[in-house]
């Protein structure tokens, strides 16, 4: 597998560590969320046959967390973004 790193260009998958669904970015605030909300964030994942957005960490590289959009059927990677940009776009800041 080759991941097109937004800053570093095409990199071999062996340089990365995989975490899972990019929904992990959308962590609710523990002070305001109810039990169900935090439970769902922690445990519920979609398992699509098709496009999935997932988190990859460039551990053997620049240590960027990336959001990779990958098709689970074909393994085609259609988009790679810095997770920080994705987080900011979904309203996360401080």
């Amino acid at each position: 597998m080759i991941i097109e790193h937004p800053l570093l260009g095409p990199r071999d998958a062996a340089e990365f560590v995989y975490l899972g669904d990019a929904a992990m970015i959308d962590r609710p605030d523990g002070m305001t969320v109810d039990d169900t909300g935090m439970h769902d964030y922690m445990y519920l994942r979609d398992n699509p046959a098709g496009d999935i957005r997932e988190l990859w960490y460039h551990e053997q590289g620049d240590r960027s967390w990336l959001v990779v959009t990958r098709n689970t059927i074909t393994h085609e990677i259609t988009k790679v973004e810095l997770a920080r940009d994705v987080a900011r776009r979904s309203g996360r800041s401080r």
Binding site: M24, E59, R84, R88, R92, S93, R94
Partner: peptide
Amino acid sequence: AGTVFRKLEFARQCLWPDL
């Protein structure tokens, strides 16, 4: 040592990107 660092980077970049 390695995995704590990875988790801290996750928190820094993905959860609170503007800290």
